[in-house]
């Protein structure tokens, strides 16, 4: 229970240190957050688009998220926020199809984070391949809030690895890509991609995995949580 204890202590510390009301509220609630079955655990599924892979050098240009409650995704909670940045999207445009002109229409990163952490209050974070996205969010939120915010995270890529290890199935290169995994779980393929669609796609994948891992719907999420 060491990581969990440390996470809670960091939550309380952040709540004390940060003057921003949204951050303080997020930190206060994250300290009391308990993870149980999916049906009882509020989740926020998030995906980011960035100008590159280095959290200290590159910028977030889009944030997409959706919320899960009682094991269902609420379409009304879908958000897609474009972030304005002075850094050119450069070659990364080929991946996320956001051009400098699109990004110019965005909001400042502070406003984007404010909305995100408001929506994430009292929720477990969900990513597909959490490492990179969380690194960007931690770095950006430290600049914004002045404290390193703690994250309690589910990762569909990790979940799949656990499942395969349990079944002693090998993992080949590319097996864990979001779209490939979704096809394995009979989920529809999305032709378009943006931060929101990928966040929704990840949320749907979590629903499918939870059903498949325990068809009674009582899969315990706690063993699959990572703390950042």
């Amino acid at each position: 229970m060491f990581p969990r204890w440390r996470y809670r202590r960091r939550c309380r510390a952040a709540a004390r240190q940060c003057g921003l009301p949204t951050v303080a509220a997020y930190a206060k609630d994250c300290a009391g957050l308990d993870v149980d079955k999916l049906a009882n655990t509020p989740v926020i599924s998030v995906d980011l688009e960035m100008t590159g892979l280095d959290a200290t050098q590159n910028h977030i240009i889009a944030i997409g998220w959706t919320q899960l409650d009682k094991g269902r995704i609420s379409v009304a909670s879908n958000r897609h926020v474009l972030i304005s940045t002075k850094q050119s999207v450069g070659h990364s445009a080929a991946i996320h199809e956001l051009r400098d002109s699109d990004v110019a229409e965005g909001v400042p990163i502070e406003d984007g984070l404010e909305a995100l952490f408001e929506a994430a209050r009292g929720r477990v974070w969900l990513f597909h391949h959490a490492g990179l996205d969380v690194a960007f969010l931690r770095y950006a939120s430290r600049l914004w809030a002045g404290v390193a915010l703690p994250f309690m995270v589910l990762d569909t890529m990790n979940l799949e690895l656990t499942i395969r290890k349990r079944r002693e199935q090998p993992v080949h290169h590319g097996d864990l890509q979001l779209n490939k995994l979704r096809a394995n779980y009979n989920l529809p393929g999305y032709t378009a991609h943006n931060a929101l669609i990928d966040a929704c796609a990840t949320a749907e994948l979590l629903l499918a995995m939870a059903e498949k891992m325990d068809s009674s719907g009582s899969l315990r999420l706690q063993p699959h949580i990572n703390y950042y």
Partner: peptide
């Protein structure tokens, strides 16, 4: 209409 929807997943046989 879309905003009123919730997404759910049911495994085969449920």
């Amino acid at each position: 209409l879309a905003r009123t929807l919730e997404v759910a997943y049911y495994a085969q046989g449920k």
